[in-house]
Simulated scan of single mutants.
Amino acid sequence: MKDNADTHAIDLLMVGPLIPEIIAYLEGKYRLHKWWTIEDKETFLREHGATVRGIVTSGRFGATKTLIDSLPALEVINSFGVGYDPIDIDAAHARNVVVTNTPGVLDDCVADTALALILGVSRRIAEADRFVRAGRWPNESFGLGRKIGGKRCGIVGLGNIGRQIAARAEAFGMDIAYYNRRARTDVPAHYRYCEDVVSLARESDYLVLALPGGSATRHIVNAEVLKALGQDGYLINVARGSVVDEAALVQALQAGEIAGAGLDVFEHEPKTPEALWSMDNVVLLPHIASGTHETRKAMADLVLKNLDGWFATREVVTQVV
């Protein structure tokens, strides 16, 4: 791609550390400022804020209204990840700032992780690993797990990732039901649509969360939903931590109101509730659903394509609506 301007004169602000390949590329092509390394941020904004034209961030680091408003020359925010709820979209739109993310390229790996969590909690994979490593196998028998074939998989959010999860779950012999803002007409007719999350939870053995974060979905899974899921039901979350009332989840697990959980995301990550650490019926992952070499490279390529495209032609590939 040929640039219409000298990109080395363009100031970018990276909010938090991203993968080394992105950092190296941006340092070689733009004038990159690393927000997390700047001790005196007020002085930086006073001296350089007026020249920053782009923000590079992720679904973890986001971009606040305060930061957006402090950069008068800001044109574009490029996010590494599909989730963009930590970015103040209203503030960006008010300033006519373009926001991009990286949808599509991580669907397969996130769906794979959802299935890994379903299998992990059902067949007690992590627990069995700990059992062997502790040297208990020669003297004890390990308990039984649960078969997932024939069970009901309820998916909250049947978007691109949700449909990939459904396809994988169905391949394992699971029945599919879902909740969406509206019923889909482009999915198999035997996928059952539920009008609300409580109804879906009541019909599910596994309630899998694959919906966006943000204020509209905050705590959509609450105590009522968990109670509807019931003592034989499992909660699987590969969406955003904010969509689950974490305190209610801990309480439901402690009281035995649900059978277990597989969690890749948390409400206050990287902090996780200590009460979950000792629970054998819970599998905890450090937000790694998209964490493969192949997917992270594809995400990085899309971030850079959006960024270079904007400064070359004022066009991006994946603009957030």
Rank of each mutant, 00 (worst) to 15 (best):
M1K: 09
A5S: 04
E21Q: 15
E27S: 10
G28S: 06
E42G: 02
T43K: 14
F44P: 04
R46H: 07
E47S: 08
V56D: 09
S58E: 08
R60W: 08
T64M: 11
L71N: 05
L74W: 02
F80I: 06
V82G: 05
G83P: 07
A91G: 00
A92F: 05
N96L: 00
T100L: 02
A111C: 10
I118K: 13
R123V: 06
D129F: 07
D129S: 14
R130D: 15
V132W: 09
N139V: 02
G149W: 08
C153A: 15
G154D: 03
G154Q: 05
L158Y: 10
G159C: 09
Q164Y: 07
R168P: 00
R168M: 01
Y179E: 00
Y191P: 02
R192G: 02
Y193D: 01
C194Q: 07
A201N: 05
D205E: 12
P212C: 11
S215M: 11
T217L: 08
V225A: 05
L229E: 11
Y234D: 12
Y234N: 15
A239N: 12
R240P: 05
R240D: 12
S242Y: 09
L249Q: 06
V250L: 08
I258W: 09
I258F: 06
A261G: 14
E274M: 09
H293V: 13
N306E: 00
V321T: 13
